[in-house]
Amino acid sequence: MAKSSENIIEVKDLVKKYNGFKAVDGISFEVKRGEIFGILGPNGAGKTTTLEMIEGLRPIDSGEVHIDEFNVNNDPNKVKSVIGVQLQSSAFFDYLKLTELLEFFGSLYQRKVNPMEILKEVELEDKAKSQVKTLSGGQKQRFSIASALVNEPKVLFLDEPTTGLDPQARHHLWGLIQQIRDNGKTVVITTHYMDEAEILCDRVAIMDAGKIIKLDTPDNLVDRLIKKGFKKKKVEKAANLEDVFLDLTGKLLRES
């Protein structure tokens, strides 16, 4: 049982070893209800492995994970029924329409779903009769999120959701993720992009070599660095190149 109702996820001393190498090396943290929690770190830091253990997709070597009232070690299927998962590289079946795919996923949760309602939530209702292979990158990611919403999960896990998207699609997806959080869901997200973490995340854990080396709000982390006397070599201007890009090309989504 999660000890405090404030926390929806509690991770304690989580370890994953591969041939003696500790991919995840005894990490502990909590995720609060209704927040967007970011896990940051360079490639190979153990972000995805951590996520997959929490999601019940990878056996836990030692440590404990509680989500809501369930223990992942004992009740992986109960945990899976209250979470939604968007994997780093999740493809979907060919030859099924988006609505059919959502119904299919619903059946895996023993649920009758209203596909159009879910598609509306991710702004894909006009693609209802299309197949996934005809979608653009941003649309695919949005559909991936839609498929993770069929069971009305309490927690949504997003593994590098904006990798490979153009700036317009990234900004659009950020809006969608914030909206999901505003609807009362908790979001756990991994990313390589610091601007993304800064805009989206209420708190972030920074991982390196299988350990969490810092956990705080983005604001606090930045303030603490500045307090240490850190100075940027190049002083930031009031706008950056991305602002220029979006100013020139507009925020309109580029998808057919």
Binding site: L57, N77, K78, L87, S89, S90, A91, F92, Y109
Partner: peptide, 14 residues
């Protein structure tokens, strides 16, 4: 290969 199995296994289906 395409990660579809993994996605299915992320649901409670046995």
């Amino acid at each position: 290969e395409r990660g579809i199995l993994r996605r299915l296994l992320a649901t409670p289906v046995k």
